[in-house]
Protein backbone atom coordinates (compact mmCIF):
# COMPACT_ATOMS: atom_id res chain seq x y z
CA UNK A 1 0.00 0.00 0.00
CA UNK A 2 2.76 2.40 1.05
CA UNK A 3 6.38 1.69 0.26
CA UNK A 4 9.19 4.20 0.64
CA UNK A 5 12.84 3.62 -0.14
CA UNK A 6 15.54 5.81 1.32
CA UNK A 7 13.09 8.67 1.66
CA UNK A 8 14.92 11.83 2.71
CA UNK A 9 13.86 15.43 3.17
CA UNK A 10 16.33 18.17 3.94
CA UNK A 11 15.30 21.70 4.88
CA UNK A 12 18.47 23.69 4.50
CA UNK A 13 20.93 22.16 6.93
CA UNK A 14 18.26 20.32 8.90
CA UNK A 15 17.48 16.74 8.02
CA UNK A 16 13.75 16.34 8.69
CA UNK A 17 13.38 12.82 7.33
CA UNK A 18 16.45 10.62 6.96
CA UNK A 19 16.39 7.63 4.57
CA UNK A 20 13.16 6.07 5.78
CA UNK A 21 12.11 2.68 4.40
CA UNK A 22 8.45 2.37 5.24
CA UNK A 23 6.34 -0.66 4.42
CA UNK A 24 2.62 -0.63 4.97
CA UNK A 25 0.66 -3.59 3.62
CA UNK A 26 -2.96 -3.54 2.50
CA UNK A 27 -5.26 -4.18 5.45
CA UNK A 28 -2.76 -2.97 8.05
CA UNK A 29 -3.61 -0.68 10.87
CA UNK A 30 -0.23 0.97 10.96
CA UNK A 31 0.80 3.17 13.85
CA UNK A 32 3.53 5.67 13.05
CA UNK A 33 4.98 6.76 16.37
CA UNK A 34 7.50 9.38 17.24
CA UNK A 35 8.15 12.34 19.51
CA UNK A 36 7.06 15.82 18.47
CA UNK A 37 9.18 17.20 15.68
CA UNK A 38 10.59 13.83 14.70
CA UNK A 39 9.50 14.19 11.09
CA UNK A 40 6.12 12.43 11.16
CA UNK A 41 4.20 15.24 9.53
CA UNK A 42 6.86 15.90 6.91
CA UNK A 43 6.73 12.25 5.95
CA UNK A 44 2.94 12.30 5.71
CA UNK A 45 3.12 15.41 3.54
CA UNK A 46 5.61 13.71 1.24
CA UNK A 47 3.34 10.67 0.95
CA UNK A 48 0.53 12.95 -0.22
CA UNK A 49 2.64 14.89 -2.70
CA UNK A 50 2.43 18.15 -0.75
CA UNK A 51 6.13 18.27 0.02
CA UNK A 52 8.74 17.07 -2.46
CA UNK A 53 11.38 14.65 -1.23
CA UNK A 54 15.05 15.59 -1.45
CA UNK A 55 15.85 12.01 -2.41
CA UNK A 56 14.35 8.56 -2.20
CA UNK A 57 11.26 6.94 -3.66
CA UNK A 58 7.63 6.68 -2.65
CA UNK A 59 5.12 4.24 -4.00
CA UNK A 60 1.47 4.53 -3.08
CA UNK A 61 -0.80 1.68 -4.23
CA UNK A 62 1.83 0.82 -6.81
CA UNK A 63 2.06 4.34 -8.27
CA UNK A 64 5.14 6.54 -7.92
CA UNK A 65 4.72 9.72 -5.85
CA UNK A 66 4.74 12.60 -6.66
CA UNK A 67 4.83 11.65 -10.38
CA UNK A 68 1.45 9.94 -10.51
CA UNK A 69 0.06 10.92 -7.15
CA UNK A 70 -3.05 12.41 -8.77
CA UNK A 71 -4.12 8.91 -9.81
CA UNK A 72 -4.11 7.54 -6.27
CA UNK A 73 -5.20 10.54 -4.24
CA UNK A 74 -8.90 10.05 -5.07
CA UNK A 75 -8.72 6.75 -3.18
CA UNK A 76 -6.97 8.25 -0.19
CA UNK A 77 -8.53 10.11 2.69
CA UNK A 78 -6.24 12.15 4.87
CA UNK A 79 -6.04 14.35 7.89
CA UNK A 80 -2.81 16.34 7.91
CA UNK A 81 -1.76 18.36 10.93
CA UNK A 82 -5.22 19.07 12.23
CA UNK A 83 -8.49 19.72 10.45
CA UNK A 84 -9.20 22.87 8.46
CA UNK A 85 -12.30 24.51 7.05
CA UNK A 86 -13.49 27.93 5.92
CA UNK A 87 -14.39 29.57 9.22
CA UNK A 88 -17.24 31.65 7.79
CA UNK A 89 -19.11 28.74 6.20
CA UNK A 90 -21.14 25.96 7.83
CA UNK A 91 -19.35 22.59 8.04
CA UNK A 92 -21.62 20.79 5.56
CA UNK A 93 -21.11 23.58 3.01
CA UNK A 94 -17.35 23.21 3.35
CA UNK A 95 -17.61 19.45 2.82
CA UNK A 96 -19.83 19.97 -0.18
CA UNK A 97 -17.31 22.40 -1.74
CA UNK A 98 -14.53 19.93 -1.01
CA UNK A 99 -16.51 17.08 -2.53
CA UNK A 100 -17.24 19.12 -5.63
CA UNK A 101 -13.56 20.01 -5.99
CA UNK A 102 -12.44 16.41 -6.31
CA UNK A 103 -12.29 14.35 -9.47
CA UNK A 104 -15.07 11.90 -10.31
CA UNK A 105 -17.32 14.29 -8.50
CA UNK A 106 -21.04 13.96 -8.57
CA UNK A 107 -22.40 16.82 -10.54
CA UNK A 108 -25.91 16.21 -9.32
CA UNK A 109 -26.47 18.18 -6.15
CA UNK A 110 -28.49 15.51 -4.39
CA UNK A 111 -25.79 12.85 -4.77
CA UNK A 112 -23.24 15.26 -3.39
CA UNK A 113 -25.49 16.07 -0.46
CA UNK A 114 -25.97 12.36 0.12
CA UNK A 115 -22.22 11.74 0.19
CA UNK A 116 -21.70 14.63 2.57
CA UNK A 117 -24.53 13.43 4.79
CA UNK A 118 -23.04 9.91 4.90
CA UNK A 119 -19.62 11.21 5.89
CA UNK A 120 -21.10 13.45 8.57
CA UNK A 121 -23.14 10.55 9.91
CA UNK A 122 -20.06 8.30 10.15
CA UNK A 123 -18.20 10.73 12.36
CA UNK A 124 -21.18 11.52 14.57
CA UNK A 125 -22.12 14.91 13.15
CA UNK A 126 -25.37 13.83 11.48
CA UNK A 127 -27.48 16.43 13.24
CA UNK A 128 -25.19 19.37 12.54
CA UNK A 129 -26.91 22.71 11.95
CA UNK A 130 -25.96 25.68 9.74
CA UNK A 131 -23.65 27.38 12.25
CA UNK A 132 -20.38 28.59 10.73
CA UNK A 133 -17.30 26.52 11.49
CA UNK A 134 -15.71 29.30 13.53
CA UNK A 135 -18.22 28.55 16.31
CA UNK A 136 -17.31 24.82 16.41
CA UNK A 137 -15.53 23.23 19.34
CA UNK A 138 -12.15 21.58 18.83
CA UNK A 139 -13.78 18.15 18.88
CA UNK A 140 -16.36 19.13 16.27
CA UNK A 141 -13.64 20.49 14.00
CA UNK A 142 -11.74 17.24 14.38
CA UNK A 143 -14.85 15.27 13.45
CA UNK A 144 -15.45 17.53 10.48
CA UNK A 145 -11.87 16.95 9.33
CA UNK A 146 -12.40 13.19 9.61
CA UNK A 147 -15.62 13.49 7.63
CA UNK A 148 -13.62 15.25 4.93
CA UNK A 149 -11.14 12.37 4.90
CA UNK A 150 -13.97 9.85 4.55
CA UNK A 151 -15.75 11.67 1.71
CA UNK A 152 -14.43 9.58 -1.15
CA UNK A 153 -14.86 6.20 0.58
CA UNK A 154 -11.08 5.83 0.55
CA UNK A 155 -9.10 2.58 0.40
CA UNK A 156 -6.32 4.16 2.40
CA UNK A 157 -6.67 6.53 5.32
CA UNK A 158 -3.64 8.61 6.30
CA UNK A 159 -4.43 10.25 9.60
CA UNK A 160 -2.20 12.59 11.54
CA UNK A 161 -3.24 12.73 15.21
CA UNK A 162 -6.89 11.90 14.49
CA UNK A 163 -8.14 11.98 18.07
CA UNK A 164 -6.65 15.35 18.92
CA UNK A 165 -9.14 17.45 20.88
CA UNK A 166 -11.66 14.66 21.37
CA UNK A 167 -13.05 13.65 24.77
CA UNK A 168 -12.77 10.01 25.93
CA UNK A 169 -16.14 9.14 24.38
CA UNK A 170 -15.10 10.69 21.11
CA UNK A 171 -11.78 8.86 21.12
CA UNK A 172 -13.54 5.54 21.65
CA UNK A 173 -16.05 6.36 18.90
CA UNK A 174 -13.33 7.22 16.40
CA UNK A 175 -11.31 4.16 17.33
CA UNK A 176 -14.35 1.94 16.79
CA UNK A 177 -15.01 3.68 13.48
CA UNK A 178 -11.44 3.11 12.28
CA UNK A 179 -11.53 -0.57 13.30
CA UNK A 180 -14.85 -0.98 11.50
CA UNK A 181 -13.52 0.70 8.33
CA UNK A 182 -10.39 -1.44 8.54
CA UNK A 183 -12.48 -4.62 8.77
CA UNK A 184 -14.30 -3.48 5.65
CA UNK A 185 -10.97 -3.32 3.83
CA UNK A 186 -9.58 0.15 4.44
CA UNK A 187 -5.90 0.37 5.27
CA UNK A 188 -5.27 2.79 8.11
CA UNK A 189 -2.00 4.67 8.52
CA UNK A 190 -2.07 6.61 11.74
CA UNK A 191 0.63 8.94 12.86
CA UNK A 192 0.66 9.86 16.50
CA UNK A 193 2.74 10.57 19.53
CA UNK A 194 0.11 8.96 21.76
CA UNK A 195 1.33 5.50 22.65
CA UNK A 196 -1.97 4.37 24.12
CA UNK A 197 -3.78 5.30 20.94
CA UNK A 198 -1.46 3.25 18.79
CA UNK A 199 -1.37 0.37 21.26
CA UNK A 200 -5.15 0.09 21.30
CA UNK A 201 -5.74 0.49 17.61
CA UNK A 202 -2.82 -0.68 15.54
CA UNK A 203 -1.57 -4.05 14.36
CA UNK A 204 1.77 -2.79 13.13
CA UNK A 205 4.07 -0.10 14.44
CA UNK A 206 6.81 2.08 13.03
CA UNK A 207 8.83 4.27 15.37
CA UNK A 208 10.61 7.33 14.08
CA UNK A 209 13.20 9.35 15.95
CA UNK A 210 14.86 12.49 14.66
CA UNK A 211 13.91 11.64 11.10
CA UNK A 212 15.08 8.02 11.17
CA UNK A 213 12.86 4.96 11.27
CA UNK A 214 14.28 3.10 14.26
CA UNK A 215 11.76 0.28 14.45
CA UNK A 216 9.12 -1.34 12.28
CA UNK A 217 7.37 -4.51 13.37
CA UNK A 218 4.07 -6.16 14.26
CA UNK A 219 2.72 -4.91 17.54
CA UNK A 220 2.15 -8.46 18.82
CA UNK A 221 5.80 -9.34 18.24
CA UNK A 222 6.95 -6.21 20.03
CA UNK A 223 4.81 -6.89 23.04
CA UNK A 224 6.37 -10.33 23.57
CA UNK A 225 7.04 -11.81 27.00
CA UNK A 226 10.09 -10.64 28.88
CA UNK A 227 10.77 -13.99 30.53
CA UNK A 228 9.53 -12.69 33.86
CA UNK A 229 6.37 -13.26 35.85
CA UNK A 230 4.82 -10.85 38.33
CA UNK A 231 3.36 -12.48 41.42
CA UNK A 232 1.26 -10.93 44.17
CA UNK A 233 1.31 -13.01 47.33
CA UNK A 234 0.68 -12.31 51.05
CA UNK A 235 3.46 -14.82 51.69
CA UNK A 236 6.02 -12.93 49.68
CA UNK A 237 8.84 -13.41 52.13
CA UNK A 238 8.38 -17.19 52.10
CA UNK A 239 8.19 -17.16 48.32
CA UNK A 240 11.58 -15.49 48.05
CA UNK A 241 13.07 -18.35 50.06
CA UNK A 242 11.17 -21.00 48.14
CA UNK A 243 12.11 -19.70 44.70
CA UNK A 244 15.73 -19.35 45.73
CA UNK A 245 17.44 -16.69 43.70
CA UNK A 246 14.90 -16.51 40.87
CA UNK A 247 13.24 -13.48 42.43
CA UNK A 248 14.64 -10.38 40.80
CA UNK A 249 12.83 -7.80 42.84
CA UNK A 250 10.52 -7.62 45.81
CA UNK A 251 8.27 -4.70 46.52
CA UNK A 252 5.98 -5.42 49.48
CA UNK A 253 3.89 -8.40 48.44
CA UNK A 254 4.77 -7.95 44.79
CA UNK A 255 7.49 -10.13 43.33
CA UNK A 256 9.16 -10.13 39.94
CA UNK A 257 10.28 -13.67 39.22
CA UNK A 258 12.40 -15.00 36.38
CA UNK A 259 10.16 -17.65 34.85
CA UNK A 260 8.69 -18.49 31.48
CA UNK A 261 5.42 -20.18 32.37
CA UNK A 262 3.11 -18.59 34.96
CA UNK A 263 1.11 -21.84 35.27
CA UNK A 264 4.17 -23.86 36.33
CA UNK A 265 5.19 -21.13 38.76
CA UNK A 266 1.70 -21.10 40.32
CA UNK A 267 1.83 -24.86 40.77
CA UNK A 268 5.23 -24.57 42.41
CA UNK A 269 4.07 -21.89 44.86
CA UNK A 270 0.88 -23.74 45.77
CA UNK A 271 2.86 -26.95 46.28
CA UNK A 272 4.99 -25.06 48.75
CA UNK A 273 1.82 -24.07 50.62
CA UNK A 274 1.98 -20.42 49.67
CA UNK A 275 -1.04 -18.27 48.87
CA UNK A 276 -1.18 -16.50 45.52
CA UNK A 277 -3.39 -13.43 45.09
CA UNK A 278 -2.45 -12.67 41.51
CA UNK A 279 -0.04 -13.76 38.86
CA UNK A 280 0.68 -12.63 35.30
CA UNK A 281 3.29 -12.85 32.64
CA UNK A 282 5.31 -9.68 32.24
CA UNK A 283 5.24 -8.31 28.69
CA UNK A 284 7.21 -5.56 27.11
CA UNK A 285 5.20 -2.40 26.85
CA UNK A 286 5.30 -0.17 23.83
CA UNK A 287 6.10 2.70 26.12
CA UNK A 288 9.31 1.13 27.39
CA UNK A 289 10.34 0.31 23.85
CA UNK A 290 9.69 3.73 22.50
CA UNK A 291 11.37 5.50 25.40
CA UNK A 292 14.36 3.25 24.92
CA UNK A 293 14.56 3.89 21.19
CA UNK A 294 13.87 7.60 21.00
CA UNK A 295 15.31 10.74 22.49
CA UNK A 296 13.23 13.55 23.96
CA UNK A 297 11.03 15.37 21.47
CA UNK A 298 12.26 18.49 19.74
CA UNK A 299 9.97 20.57 21.96
CA UNK A 300 12.23 19.70 24.88
CA UNK A 301 14.97 22.28 24.69
CA UNK A 302 17.61 21.10 27.13
CA UNK A 303 21.37 21.16 27.09
CA UNK A 304 21.65 17.39 26.99
CA UNK A 305 20.68 17.03 23.34
CA UNK A 306 23.55 15.99 21.12
Amino acid sequence: MIVTKGLTKRYGARLAVDSVDLQVAAGDRYGFLGPNGSGKTTLVRMLLGLVYATSGEIELMGRPVPGRVAEVLPEIGALVEGPAAYPHLPGPTYLSLLEAAGPGRYRQGWKRRQRVAEALDRVGLAGIDRRPVRTYSLGMRQRLGLAGALLGQPKLLILDEPTNGLDPHGIREIRDLLVELNKAGTTVFLSSHLLAEVEQLCTRVGVVDRGRLVLQDDLAALQGPTGRVVVHSPDAAAAVTLLDGRVERRDGDRLVVRAVDPAALTARLVEGGLRVRGIREERRTLEDLVLELTAAGSDHIGESRP
Partner: peptide, 14 residues
Protein backbone atom coordinates in the same frame (compact mmCIF):
# COMPACT_ATOMS: atom_id res chain seq x y z
CA UNK B 1 -3.32 30.14 6.42
CA UNK B 2 -6.78 28.59 6.86
CA UNK B 3 -5.13 25.20 6.28
CA UNK B 4 -7.59 24.37 3.51
CA UNK B 5 -4.93 24.55 0.78
CA UNK B 6 -3.51 21.14 1.70
CA UNK B 7 -6.96 19.57 1.75
CA UNK B 8 -7.78 21.00 -1.68
CA UNK B 9 -4.51 19.73 -3.13
CA UNK B 10 -4.98 16.19 -1.80
CA UNK B 11 -8.58 16.05 -3.04
CA UNK B 12 -6.80 16.23 -5.52
CA UNK B 13 -7.06 19.57 -7.27
CA UNK B 14 -4.15 20.18 -9.64
Amino acid sequence: SAGTLRYLLIRPVG
